[in-house]
Design a protein around this nucleic acid. Structure first.
Lengths: 204, 204
DNA sequence: AACCAGATCAAGAAACAATATTGATCTAGG
DNA sequence: CCTAGATCAATATTGTTTCTTGATCTGGTT
């Protein structure tokens, strides 16, 4: 009956299933505790100073999580697109005011779960403890690798790595943002590109 | 010492004073409970689905409150510029999820008061009960008149009325938004204008 | 039946905002 | 004192809003 909403959950259920297969009743819990919410471009999902109220799973669209420095320039911690998560865990679990912002680069649909509900979810289906543990471990590893790249590679190499690791994002995200994610200036990326345009062999 | 911030409050204190004169300690309460916050163009002050956390008094800039219909087209309930208020009272007092959006058309500075603090304000200075009652009554009357115009006047007359009632807004707000406020199509306004340009006597 | 107020749709022009490029100059560390 | 890369300013390119115009449709009047 409520087919449309049901379909939205499929993506998420597939996601969890790929980590650990779920039983029917566990799938039902997901339908029960997660809620769909749409955000338009430029809307904030989380603003600095607010307490993060939800975990966010991206069904479609594109978002970024970032911190503004004293001059107000953003430093991007994370991009998220369909099938990934974007959360300030510190603010969410500790109920602290967040230092971060999450906003929408491309109209998005999220599945969200509140702090109260995730507690219920863990109680009712301890399997999710394991699922989220695994998920978080994976993210930690990714972040560690990125950290390592950041302290060890040249700006140029970081950019070329980004290109090969996220070929999809290049055409979707303005390069100012990619610069801010890599911690380099936008002009620098521009120069790399034009250098490569003249000499197509570079960076391979 | 804190001269700049002090000056910001003057506008608001004058506003209240013009309704009922305030005593010194009541002015202090305003300084205590209201907080200054700046918003840039296109930022959201309130997003559909969130609970409205503040009453907003506009010091400068321009904002709109609107509802998106099923097709995602906005229908504008209210514009606010310097010296006026823009609130979803239902969401604010009942702590309901809002159906409305408030966003910024021109960089703005707001003075905001939270739900907890306005309760304290009413307790400490019951005069504000009366002030906000009067304020709200005035707004109700304005809204009623607008309602009446909407059900009784032609689209053309509504537009010309808007012109004479808000000559200031015409040069500030794109006409698509004015159309959405009046409940007519943008094309229709465009035609009125070009008709009048050819025959300058119209609509007087 | 023909008319009028106004909507809707599509296409183009004009105005404005965001993004990308380029050159010039500066700075810190090896 | 070189090199990698930043910063600043100017310009070019691209993309988004906004406005205008013509064509066509609709539901209620006379």
């Amino acid at each position: 009956m409520y087919q449309e909403t049901k379909d939205r959950f499929t993506t998420m259920i597939d996601f969890f299933n790929s980590i650990i297969p779920l039983k029917q009743e566990e799938k039902e819990l997901i339908r029960q505790y997660f809620h769909l919410r749409s955000y338009k471009k430029r809307m904030f999902v989380l603003q600095e100073g607010d307490v993060c109220q939800h975990l966010n799973f991206v069904l479609c669209g594109c978002l970024r999580m970032y911190k503004d420095d004293e001059n107000g320039s953003p430093h991007i911690l994370l991009f998220a697109t369909e099938g990934s998560w974007i959360n300030d865990l510190d603010s969410y679990y500790q109920e602290k005011k967040s230092l971060l912002n999450i906003d929408v680069l491309e109209n998005a649909e999220l599945l969200q779960i509140s702090r109260q509900d995730i507690v219920k979810l863990y109680l009712n289906a301890p399997k999710f403890d394991r699922i989220f543990r695994i998920l978080t471990e994976k993210n930690l590893v990714l972040l560690q690798n990125r950290m390592l790249e950041n302290i060890s590679l040249s700006a140029e190499d970081r950019y070329y790595n980004f290109l090969s690791n996220h070929p999809d994002l290049i055409n979707r995200i303005p390069q100012v943002h990619i610069a801010s994610y890599l911690g380099v200036s936008a002009e620098f990326i521009s120069r790399l590109r034009s250098r490569r345009a003249r000499n197509p062999l570079m960076g391979n």
